[in-house]
Design a protein around this nucleic acid. Structure first.
Lengths: 185, 185
DNA sequence: GTCTATAACGGGATAGAC
DNA sequence: GTCTATCCCGTTATAGAC
């Protein structure tokens, strides 16, 4: 699965070649087909793996001695997706591919919708901890905007047209803008 | 070119089959290769075509008798990309594909970067007309956020996980949020 | 310019031995 | 479980007639 994540990050979902995956994993192509039914099976299982791993590194990141204040917690959680670390890049790339492919492949939409919903809800919850008086609907809207913005920024970063530091700055400002608004309402 | 845009909107850049394009255009595959050097040439020319067409429908949209006030002008321009009309859908889909492919294909990055820059600048200009006292750097940052958000929302819409009306609402609120902030600074 | 027919190739998938 | 060898199909691209 780790080899598959690496190959997808390098070539994309549609660029994954079973032969390249086999080489990356150090086995033969036949063995890949022994463990996975077919190419689609490889992709399905890999995307599950990536999704699980993303939840892990979101929730299990090393907790500092004293818990962060809610605002920092929110910021750090969102910024997690904008880091130039191999695992993060692999996950971000794979998710971008999943989204892009879902436009043409309805089969992928269910996974995508579920993961997106969870992510939006978690973000809304964090926002609620920062701004406890805000109505749920406002929190939900802000969470949808922040996560959609993050996806857009991530895409620009990964496609090399936006430097990572700039993307991070824009995201932090967006958090500030949304929180200012929530507080004023 | 129109046939190519339709096929790309239906199958994606990586899903385009020369045979399907030929059928869509009502000619033989050999004729496609007569007019374009190869598959890459087809894609390059089609993406140029789509880019030109997007500029056209952005700038040439029917101007109402009285010019809109700057705020409406900004909103309408951004909302143009979130419409369920065939041409718009084709363009949005193709741009999403271009971005997704640029992650793995450095050749595409130049076109993408140029088009994105122009779009961000135009948006910053419109923002400046609404909020003339704001410093250029703030306008630029807001324009980057709004366009990146629009890309994220567009992706979610096209992949079927966000209803169009909701996407439009979220975008309009984002415009409001950014303008409130610009005015307060 | 446009066609029919086909060559050439890449890559998914499997047979069968060990 | 794992390999080598290979089949076979879909797709790109071209040859050659009209």
């Amino acid at each position: 699965m780790e080899a598959a994540a690496r190959v997808i990050a390098r070539r994309g979902v549609r660029g994954l070649r079973v032969e390249e995956l086999a080489a990356e994993a150090g086995v033969s192509t036949a063995l890949i087909y022994y463990h996975f039914k077919d190419r689609a099976g490889i992709l399905r299982r890999t995307l599950e793996f990536i999704s699980d791993r993303a939840e892990r590194y979101t929730s299990e990141r090393e907790t500092p001695a004293r818990p962060l204040d809610p605002r920092r917690e929110l910021e750090q959680t969102l910024l997690l997706e904008l880091q130039d670390e191999p695992v993060v890049r692999e996950n971000s790339t794979a998710w971008g591919e999943l989204r892009a492919n879902a436009v043409f492949d309805p089969e992928l939409r269910e996974d995508l919708a579920k993961a997106t919903l969870i992510w939006v809800q978690e973000t809304a919850e964090l926002l609620g901890q920062v701004s406890p008086m805000s109505p749920a609907a406002s929190l939900a809207a802000s969470a949808e905007r922040l996560t959609a913005l993050l996806e857009g920024l991530s895409m620009r970063w990964l496609s090399g047209i936006l430097p990572l530091t700039h993307a991070r700055t824009l995201l932090l400002e967006a958090v500030a803008v949304e929180l200012e608004r929530l507080d004023r309402k």
